[in-house]
Amino acid sequence: MNALLEVDALRVFYRKVEGLHRASLRVEEGSVVTVIGPNGAGKTTLLGAIMGLLPSSGAVRYAGAELAGVPTEARVARGLCLVPERRELFGELSVEDNLRLGAFQRVRHGERDAMRDLAAIYARFPRLEERRAQLAGTLSGGERQMLALGRALMAKPRLLMLDEPSLGLAPRVVRDIYHIIADLKRAGVSILLVEQNARAALQVADRGYVLETGQITLEGSAAELAANPRVIESYLGLAARSAGA
């Protein structure tokens, strides 16, 4: 398999403090890769740098091309999409406008059929169709996550990056989201999944990385990581503890 995304020795300084220290990882085409780690380890920083939202040094190669100097919108146009931790929806616009804007780059480059994909998104998220005319700011937490995901899918991503998709969601909704991730993988979308919910992430992923205080400290197949005593102790935490107690 080919590496769709290769991150090599990525460093990010945020207000003069190093937020990411020479982190390296790869995502193979068609695979799901997860990055797990505690709060403040630099997971969001990593995704921000890959998206070009934060200045960084080191190399990011995507689909065979170096991304240095490529602005965020051009990365989106190439199919690199992020569903951020804070969702970043357009609260004062309707649900449908949020989705339409998801296809902004495609429409701008003359894809006339982009709006036909709205139907596909609504088929996947019937809740969004019910609320199509409602303002995004009035949605509940679960609906927001669906809208954020739907908006990203409107861009036809080749590599979808998800930052804490289960954050603040009810277990049932988390289950739905992970079903969608599995679906997308079957449809050939590569996924980079950043999670604190290590258990859920490791179940759906092929490979995983552990990011701690800005550094990759462990990597391996998802199964290996799930069996690693350190990962169990730190990230599958409570479960292992109670099982052992």
Binding site: S166, R175, R199, V204, L238, R241, A245
Partner: peptide, 16 residues
């Protein structure tokens, strides 16, 4: 707390 089933469910957010 470590044995509370509701807490475990919330933290594990089970996807099985």
């Amino acid at each position: 707390i470590q044995r509370n089933p509701a807490v475990l469910e919330a933290y594990l957010g089970g996807i099985e």
